[in-house]
Computed example of a mutant assay.
Amino acid sequence: MDLYFSPMACSMATRIAAYEAGADVNFLKVDTKARPKVVEDGTAFLAINPMGQVPVLRTDDGELIVENAVILQYLADRFPASGLIPADGPQRRKVQSWLGFIGSELHIGAFTVLLRPTAPDGAKIFAHERLAERLTHLDAHLKGREFLAGRFSVADAYLFVMLTWARYLAIDFTPYPALAAYRDRLQTRPSVARAFDEEFTLFKAAA
């Protein structure tokens, strides 16, 4: 499998999941700042994903899968022994619900605006307010829980990336002690620590 990624982007969630599952994945870095965007092997990235967004996963059969939540579920299903998502039933739907929440309420609903330099100030104020509400919800849910849905799942991998972005934006986590403790626990998990260290090194080198 090939994963097209950009350092510290949401594609880091798939790197975490791959390490957690012990999957054999070839990582191909995409220069998203180049115009046009280009893969490190010289391939035009828009030929792979016309939307120009990472992640993209090329399966062993040559299928190209886009959208973070879909890729994460595919990888989890491909390696069921990892326990990254339940096979079926209410527990699977819990993980899927959290993937939807993270993708819509945090990733698109807040961070896409907050991380965009050209976003209007009014939009950023609104996004900060929206983010505070969502972080409060997460903090309440994580009180007394180690993970989002019983055990470590692809939803936790995705949420960790969002919390990393929050740290980059200097979001104050004082009002969210359970969420802060959860973030710090995940940071020490071997799959998470390895993925974070690798991607942060690449990110700094490109800065």
Results as ranks from 00 to 15, higher is better:
Phe152Cys: 09
Phe147Ala: 07
Ala166Gly: 15
Ser153Ile: 01
Leu135Met: 03
Ala157Asp: 08
Asp139Pro: 12
Glu133Tyr: 12
Ala166Asp: 00
Ala132Phe: 11
Ser153Pro: 04
Arg130Leu: 05
Ala123Ile: 00
Glu146Gln: 13
Leu138Ile: 15
Ala140Trp: 10
Leu148Asp: 00
Phe126Ile: 11
Leu169Ala: 01
Glu146Ala: 00
Ala132Thr: 14
Ala170Ser: 15
Leu159Met: 00
Thr136Ala: 10
Met162Pro: 04
Asp172Gln: 10
Arg145Phe: 08
Phe173Ile: 07
Ala132Leu: 08
Gly150Trp: 09
Ile125Thr: 14
Ala149Glu: 02
Lys124Gly: 03
Ala140Glu: 12
Ala127His: 04
Ile125Gly: 11
Tyr158Lys: 01
Leu135Glu: 03
Ile125Glu: 15
Asp156Cys: 09
Trp165Glu: 06
Ala157Tyr: 08
Ile125Leu: 15
Leu142Gln: 06
Leu148Met: 05
Ala132Val: 04
Ile125Pro: 03
Val161Trp: 06
Asp121Lys: 05
Arg130Tyr: 11
Ala140Val: 11
Thr136Ser: 05
Asp156Lys: 02
Asp172Ser: 05
Asp139Cys: 05
Ala132Tyr: 02
Ala166Gln: 03
Ala157Asn: 07
Phe160Lys: 00
Trp165Ile: 10
Leu138Ala: 01
Ala155Trp: 05
His137Phe: 13
Ile171Tyr: 02
Ala123Glu: 15
Phe160Thr: 07
Ile171Ala: 02
Arg145Leu: 02
Ser153Arg: 00
Phe126Arg: 07
Arg130Val: 14
Lys143Arg: 13
Ala157Gln: 01
Val161Met: 04
Glu129Thr: 11
Ala155Arg: 04
Gly122Ile: 08
Leu163Lys: 06
Ala170Leu: 13
Lys124Gln: 08
Ala155Phe: 03
Tyr168Leu: 14
Leu159Gly: 05
Gly144Asp: 12
Trp165Asp: 00
Tyr158Glu: 04
Phe147Thr: 13
Leu163Gln: 00
Leu148Tyr: 09
Ala127Cys: 08
Tyr168Ser: 14
Arg167Pro: 09
Leu163Ala: 12
Leu169Lys: 01
Leu138Phe: 05
Leu131Tyr: 08
Gly122Lys: 02
Met162Ile: 13
Arg167Ala: 15
